[in-house]
Design a protein around this nucleic acid. Structure first.
Lengths: 144, 144
DNA sequence: TTTGTTATTGCAAATTTTCGCATCAAGCGG
DNA sequence: CCGCTTGATGCGAAAATTTGCAATAACAAA
């Protein structure tokens, strides 16, 4: 169990929830897979290591981890994807033409966060924000 | 047919697609319902007026309208909701405690949009941005 | 370590969303 | 106004996601 996973385990128990092998496995898988993963991908990754693990459990676990804010759920071009909430907050630029996802450090959004807090008293979770649009590459009139 | 719907009809045909009664109905329903609506809600709204209309058609139509950017799809607390893209761009603050959705004029985001364009050449669709967090009301230690 | 409480899981059924394909009809050309 | 062409729909089946409930197993307390 890595340092981060150790932390996760404590966080779950600290809130009065139970750390089950199923949850550890899903967490591990998510860490191992790195970036974004769909529920189905998580299930496939995890299944061989615990064949008895039910798909419904994966869905519920993912939901649970999202609620605890240990995992971020995002909708990218209609796909629901999950990602470990790591150390560095970041946001995603998703190009609606080429579907490419650019990952950006969240520094530039702190102004926005501050403004939202000052103006509306709203404490925004600006890590893992998804911004769709058209990337630089796809704006040029198809040089292919 | 309202002014806006007229415009929609032209936009669909202008791109070489067909304006079918099913599409008109879904568009009408979405307009009539005002804010956000799930696919299921749209289907229920539309069904009595055209009982033969199939649920799959609603899904496909919604998808189609999203692609044409006449309708915005967002993920709000795990629910996929659709909304007509109206005149005034706006963004949504979604409180993860009370699930309330605050609708904000998008003026304050133009800076962000400009910055993204200047820095990354990314042309962001900042109308209909979803920002989750905790609203002012839910930050106070439960005055209930 | 043993026991009790109750959060979690597995399973199966219900829902929701997607897909393939034959049929239908919107809109263009004659 | 009448056919064509082909995009769009309806239908049924498949896939994905959610839900209820009884059985299981974390983990706190003795």
């Amino acid at each position: 169990m890595s340092h981060q996973e150790q932390h996760f385990a404590e966080k779950i128990r600290a809130q009065g929830y139970r750390l089950t092998p199923q949850r550890q496995l899903v967490l591990d898988a998510l860490c191992a897979m790195g970036g974004h993963a769909t529920a189905g991908e998580v299930f496939e990754q995890v299944s061989p290591q615990m064949p008895a693990l039910n798909q419904a459990t994966v869905y519920r676990t993912l939901e649970f981890l999202v609620e605890l804010r240990m995992v971020a759920r995002s909708d990218i071009t209609g796909q629901t994807v999950y990602e470990i909430v790591g150390e560095q907050p970041h946001y995603h630029l998703v190009c609606r033409r080429c579907e490419h996802v650019y990952e950006m450090a969240a520094d530039q959004l702190t102004d926005l966060a501050d403004w939202l807090l000052a103006e509306h008293g709203f404490r925004a979770d600006l890590d893992h924000l998804i911004i769709t649009g058209v990337c630089a590459h796809c704006q040029t009139p198809t040089t292919s």
